[in-house]
Design a protein around this nucleic acid. Structure first.
Length: 282
DNA sequence: CACCAGGTATACG
DNA sequence: CGTATACATGGT
């Protein structure tokens, strides 16, 4: 099926943006995304017939696109106008926006994001990906599809992970984070934390609620708020953002100025810091 | 093959 | 309250 996109949208940038850990480019220009027990294959058309926006080819039905993937890619929000609105406040931010045009803040599965970002601490992005994949293969349900030779597994549900021992988790490369994930499993399967219900809370309350889980601090909580609950006002500060604040903003956190779009701006800055070519060594 | 990775909990002062 | 330190593994 073909879909018209009337806004900034770049699959390659999204893939390497560090917010999703299971996206694969299965062949040149064809990307596989997974959420819940859904898989989709997407290709950006090379010769768009229109001068604005672009057309993409998606493997799913129209209904699945509307209910799953359109929200996943946050396509009801216009990023072009957000960029325009926030442009001009800081020269460095403007540069990051220009460089990262096409990025989007994905609306991903809440449980998967909680576990993925607990795992993310002190790990490289490739290492996070492989750990998340290991959990999926070990505990998740196989998803039927015929586009890849590799078997694809859904990220395991809390109930599927409930049978995991600490050693099982360590076998997935979690290291010292295994007890943290173990705690998350217990809190969610016991009903102590209801990931759907806390979605009704305001940003600060949601942020605090997530931090009840062992191993979830400010940064991880903000990532879950942003990448699973679409709380665009949350701006996670990691080592890259912290470095940018020091070196580009004179040590003053710029995100308060971006208000409800702080998380989106954060993503452009993170992407720029990690991916822009450096002309000179420091 | 050392080195370091989208941090956090804990122990201090 | 702010600062220092340990932490388990894997990818490069």
């Amino acid at each position: 099926m073909q879909v018209r996109i009337d806004d900034d949208f770049d699959l390659k940038k999204i893939q390497i943006s560090g917010q999703c850990f299971r996206v694969k480019e299965i062949s040149s220009g064809v990307f596989m995304f997974i959420t819940g027990d859904n898989v989709v294959f997407i290709e950006e058309e090379k010769n768009p017939l229109f001068d604005n926006g672009k057309t993409i080819e998606v493997s799913c039905s129209e209904n699945e696109w509307k209910t799953i993937w359109k929200p996943y890619f946050d396509l009801s929000r216009n990023y072009e106008s957000i960029c325009k609105k926030e442009y001009g406040k800081h020269e460095f931010t403007d540069r990051a926006i220009d460089f990262g045009r096409g990025l989007r803040i994905l609306k991903q599965d809440k449980w998967e994001m909680l576990i993925s970002f607990i795992i993310s601490q002190r790990k490289s992005i490739p290492a996070i990906s492989s750990a998340v994949n290991s959990l999926s293969v070990k505990f998740g349900t196989k998803i039927e599809q015929d586009r890849t030779v590799d078997e694809i597994f859904a990220f395991p549900t809390p109930d599927q992970m409930a049978k995991a021992t600490l050693d099982d988790l360590k076998e997935c490369g979690l290291g010292y984070r295994a007890p943290y994930v173990y705690d998350a499993i217990k809190r969610v399967t016991s009903g102590d934390i209801d990931l759907e219900k806390i979605g009704l809370l305001n940003d600060d309350e949601l942020f605090e609620e997530l931090m009840k889980v062992q191993g979830v601090g400010k940064k991880v909580s903000n990532c879950v708020c942003l990448f699973a609950y679409s709380r665009m006002g949350r701006a996670p500060v990691d080592v890259w953002i912290s470095r940018a604040i020091d070196e580009e903003y004179g040590g003053v956190n710029p995100f308060t100025e971006y208000g409800e779009n702080a998380g989106i701006i954060q993503q452009y800055i993170f992407y720029y810091e990690k991916n822009h070519p450096k002309m000179f060594a420091d």
